[in-house]
Amino acid sequence: MMKIREPAWRVFATEYNASTLELKGEGERAPSYVISPLGAMVNRIFIVGILTDLQNIGTEHEPYWRATVSDGTDRFYIYAGKYAPDATATLARIEPPAFVAVIGKSRTYSPEEGRIYVSIRPERILPVDEQVKDNWILETVRATLKRIEAVEEAREMASPSAEGLIRLGYPAPLAEGVMRALPYYQDVDTNLFRGTVLEALENILPGRATYYPMPQDLPSGPDEIDDDGLDDEDREDLVLNLIERLDTNKKGAPLAQLTREAAELGIGDDEVEEIINSLLDKGLIYEPTIGRMKRI
C-alpha cells in the first residue's frame, strides 16, 4: 500500500517555537508530530524567510550546517547534515543574508525532562525573492487565522470533538490537532497569535521602509531626549540606524561601540540587548561574526 505523504504546514516561527507537545508515532514508519498551541500537527513544514545566520558545526569533509531563518515574527532553527544532501549542498553555496524557502521535517530536542526545543531538518532549500516571502506570509496569515478560529469554535462547544469541528468545515488533520492541543495547552491565548499575524502583516505593508533621521540629526545628549516620547519602535529605529552608521568596513557594527553610542542616546545596555534580539527575530539584522551586527 502506498504511503500518503504528510502535508507541509505553513506556520509562523512564533507558533512553531511555542510548541512543546510531541506525538510519537507507533511502529517502524509511523509519522511523529509536533503539535502547536493552535493545533497544527506538524510532521512536515514549509517556511520562507531570511537566512540570517549560517555555521558549519561539523567538519570540512562531513559538514553539519546550523542555520537560522527569520520570518519577521521569530527565528526558525535548521540543522542539515549527511541525511539531507540536497539541503546541505544548497547551504554550502548560500551567503547570508538571503531569502530562502525551506521544506522539511519537524524535529525536537529535549535536554532535560519537561523542556522541548523544536527545529527543522530540511528536505529542500531554495533561494527565492522577496515576493515569494511576502506571498508565503499572506498564506500563513490565512492558515493561522483558520487555526485560531478552530480553537475558539472548539471552546464554544458543549462537548468539543474533532467530529464537531469537521462538521463545521474544518479539515480533519486540523480538527484532530485542535482536540489534542486544547487539553495540553489549556488556556492558550489566541490573542497572542493574532498579534503574531499583525506583526507579520506589518512586514509587507507598503511604506515599511519609512525614512528615519540618522542619529547625528537628533539631539546630542540624553538630557535633550524626552525618554517618555520614545516608544519601542523609535528605539529600534535608532539602533538600526546606529548599526548602519557604525558598519564602516562592511563587516558589521562592533557591539561594544554600538552599546556605547546607544547609551549616549539614553538607551541602556539591557535595553540594547532586548532591541537587538527583537531585530534579529524580525530578520532586520544578522550577526555575521561574533560581536558584530549588520543590517539586512
Rank of each mutant, 00 (worst) to 15 (best):
I290Y: 06
D237H: 14
Y64M: 10
I45V: 13
E28W: 15
P7E: 04
E244S: 12
A40H: 13
L284K: 10
A18R: 07
D189Y: 14
P254M: 06
I47Q: 02
V188K: 05
N191Q: 15
R167C: 00
V141D: 07
P111F: 05
M41F: 04
G104R: 11
S70V: 01
D269Q: 14
R155L: 05
V132W: 03
Q257L: 15
E156A: 14
L182C: 01
A40K: 11
A92M: 04
G72L: 12
T59V: 02
M157R: 03
M157V: 03
G104Y: 13
N241K: 06
D217Y: 13
A253C: 05
T90Q: 11
T210N: 02
N277W: 00
A262T: 01
Q257G: 02
W136L: 04
R167N: 06
D227H: 14
A18H: 12
L145C: 03
K250Y: 02
A143E: 14
E153W: 05
D270L: 13
V178F: 03
A80L: 03
N277G: 06
Y184G: 04
H61R: 14
Y184D: 04
M214N: 13
I120W: 02
V132R: 13
T88C: 09
P215E: 03
V188T: 15
E95P: 00
Y212M: 06
A80T: 02
V69G: 10
S19N: 04
I243A: 05
E244K: 13
Y286R: 07
A101Y: 07
V151Q: 01
L38R: 08
